[in-house]
Design a protein around this nucleic acid. Structure first.
Lengths: 117, 117
DNA sequence: GTAACTAATTACCAAAAGGTAACTATCTTA
DNA sequence: TAAGATAGTTACCTTTTGGTAATTAGTTAC
């Protein structure tokens, strides 16, 4: 009894620390949207992302992309094209977020169809 | 070709709107931790939650619980016990977040063991 | 040669989020 | 009767987040 209780709370504690880590990496208004854009659309340029996400300010997009890059969730590649272009894409680590992304998307779609009318 | 491209971006757009909805409900530093505590530990009282989560201020916990309650993710029950106690537990809607919760927990645990050595 | 597109950066500002500390009110235990 | 637990609330303050608007610098199309 005592033992199961302790094991449960160990498991719980571990999961909560893990969730905290995820929040540290993915906190804020935009990161899941950026990651999911790249998950659905593969390689995207700065302006592609801006247009896809809609209302994000360039300053904010730039900052969010840097955060994601330093945490190795995306990679930034400068292409020496006609006007210089920059491509962003998920790393293997970034792609490994797909379970979270799809769980969120599914839940949100469900929520929309059941709760919001 | 044209058609698949449009369908992909419709799907993508829908998913992103869904993810936005989830962020609106679950934004901030504490909500996933509260929900996951209740997911692992079932019914919890205010002080249980505070101790489990650790560093959260009572003011903040109180506000977060209200947010979750108005969005029907948790229910608050006042028990008329010796000293008055209040129990919080997940609603069916709140429990339906489990895929997101477990995906986050798994990813975070994996991240800890691989990336953070 | 001027307008437009690329990928940002900069300065400035408002609002939101979250923390600290103290306090309330009710009840129980030593 | 004072301490300690229950569940919060209040005032105050700092930090973070995110938005606006203008600007930069390079390239290209008209």
């Amino acid at each position: 009894m005592e033992k199961t209780k302790i094991e449960l709370s160990e498991q719980c504690h571990m999961s909560m620390k893990a969730i905290s880590d995820v929040q540290d990496l993915m906190g804020g208004k935009w990161k899941y949207l950026i990651i999911s854009s790249l998950y659905f659309l593969d390689k995207m340029r700065f302006m592609d992302l801006k247009r896809q996400i809609g209302t994000i300010a360039p300053k904010v997009l730039s900052k969010e992309l840097k955060d994601l890059e330093v945490n190795h969730l995306i990679i930034r590649t400068v292409c020496n094209t006609k006007p210089i272009t920059v491509e962003y894409e998920l790393t293997t680590l970034g792609r490994s977020l797909h379970k979270i992304i799809t769980a969120m998307a599914e839940w949100g779609i469900d929520y929309r169809s059941t709760v919001l009318k």
